[in-house]
Write a protein that binds this DNA or RNA. Sequence first.
DNA 1: CTGAAAGCGCTTACAG
DNA 2: CTGAAAGCGCTTACAG
Lengths: 330, 330
Amino acid sequence: MAVSVVLNSSASSTRVSDATRARIIEAAKKLKYRPNAVARGLQRRRMDTIGVVGVVDSEEINVYFLELLNGVIKGVDEHGQNLMVFSIHNWSEDENRIASFCDGRVDGMLLLAPRPTPHLAQLLPHHTPIVAIHNNAELPGVPNISTDSEAGAVDLMQYLIGFGHRRILHIAGPVEVTDAKQRVCGYKRALKEAGIPFETEFVVHGAYTYSSGRECMEAWLKAHEGAELPTAVFGANDAMAAGAIEALTDVGYSIPGDVSVIGFDDSLMARVCNPRLTTLRQPLREMGQRAVDILLREIDTSTTPPSEVFPTELVIRDSVGPARTTTIKI
Amino acid sequence: MAVSVVLNSSASSTRVSDATRARIIEAAKKLKYRPNAVARGLQRRRMDTIGVVGVVDSEEINVYFLELLNGVIKGVDEHGQNLMVFSIHNWSEDENRIASFCDGRVDGMLLLAPRPTPHLAQLLPHHTPIVAIHNNAELPGVPNISTDSEAGAVDLMQYLIGFGHRRILHIAGPVEVTDAKQRVCGYKRALKEAGIPFETEFVVHGAYTYSSGRECMEAWLKAHEGAELPTAVFGANDAMAAGAIEALTDVGYSIPGDVSVIGFDDSLMARVCNPRLTTLRQPLREMGQRAVDILLREIDTSTTPPSEVFPTELVIRDSVGPARTTTIKI
DNA sequence: CTGAAAGCGCTTACAG
DNA sequence: CTGAAAGCGCTTACAG
């Protein structure tokens, strides 16, 4: 009825007299009437809601995810949209769930650092626009927001090398993850360009968590007792770099006096860690926000926008200093 | 049609022959048919979704909120429900938005550390069950999940006092916040019980953020140059305690050598800070998860469950040591 | 300017 | 066992 058009102040063909308009508003107020968003959504085929799916590890808080989510929330907010958060445990085991989230309740979907199996591409419905951030595999028709991790790693390595570091331990991310691989490539390329021979034992793989950074560092020290300490440690993300700092500090090394440590992300972790972490900034908030912009455009226009690569930037704080030779004693 | 009953394997009166059942499943698979959750929700008057509203400050990441959210996600997950996140900027200015979130798209609502104005109580619809966590004001009909902050503060102060601390600076939370007030009460009560005179200048108010903790500490040092340093600092949350540590470390004091620092929450911040923070644990994850349990029960049974108070626990790490007298020089 | 009608995609009694 | 019908609460042409 007329109620609908006045309450929505919709530019319909329908005109309503001021008298009835007033009467409607009055009644609505008295009855505390609130239109039902679900019925409205069913009719409009638009829920004004986007979904975001990511794996949230309940054991250890994922600061990376959090920064991204912050940007997403900001984007959603600016566009007057709503947000549903779908948490999954595993990108391959939860394939069917992921596809089932696209069941009309969201107008579009954001994938956070997905590791899509080839099968997932089949499952994803075509009627729901999807955008990925830091995708670990091509997904046809799904634009990807990412950073050039390899170039970033090279920048960061050159900075380290500029301080005279040559024995640089790289605590890398999980082997299957695209960005982790790119960082290893950057690590190697920078060494090569500087004429420093690459040694396999200087790359170990962690799980992108604080505790795994700590464990990797401890294990390395134990395995190399009596040898020379690396003069610098390059953590593939801030959390692992911070974990490494803890391990090193616990054994009595000072940062950056005895060892320099550098991170990647410029997440919360880099700012609260002691000493504050020199790191390579990925503009995660901006990326989250941008992903929302793009997704919304895709929803509105039914066109697939192109992927985007964001620049990184070195953020210099207090955890890197000149190289200094030290022997490992535990 | 029959489609509905076989796809939902619903225990309806309706029986369907195995032949048609097979035919239906077959067709559904071929067409990649997915039932529309919105239409389903409209009919069932149940979206299997709960909402959570909280203030997410986009400037500085709110670790407290995050821990809670983690618990909520876990709870939602276990019950096979979905989650909508509504971010607001201000509990009084966004009153109308908060009320409007209860528009049928969520079956119930969780309020995270709300600061409800008296007016909000009027606005909230009665048809949507609501549960609060760490509510800062009574809200009729809204059960509250909280902790006994005052008792916690007393415990923590007694621990400090046991180490010989008498000059204890309390960086409190915002004056209007219930939990912050309770912590100040606990601070005073513990002093009184120990026969230590309370001095006004030993309580300053921050904004519960890392940077405000840092600023409060710096300001205090500057204002008291030449005086005796407090032997201990009690931050009303971990973020502010960590900020205080940074400020103290920057001026050259060592923790806990020169000054002891203690936090509140046992959030991520306490574990990654250096030295690791001794703190009073609030079981935030459990609280978030419990809030979901309670809310879902309220939704299913249409009864209002009672409020609950969770216990706190002292977590001893590395930031507290014996009292030691030092003079402030910047 | 106003009201009756159709339809969004489901579910659930109800009659054949 | 099967299919036609009503209804969830809206919106949007369309006829009076």
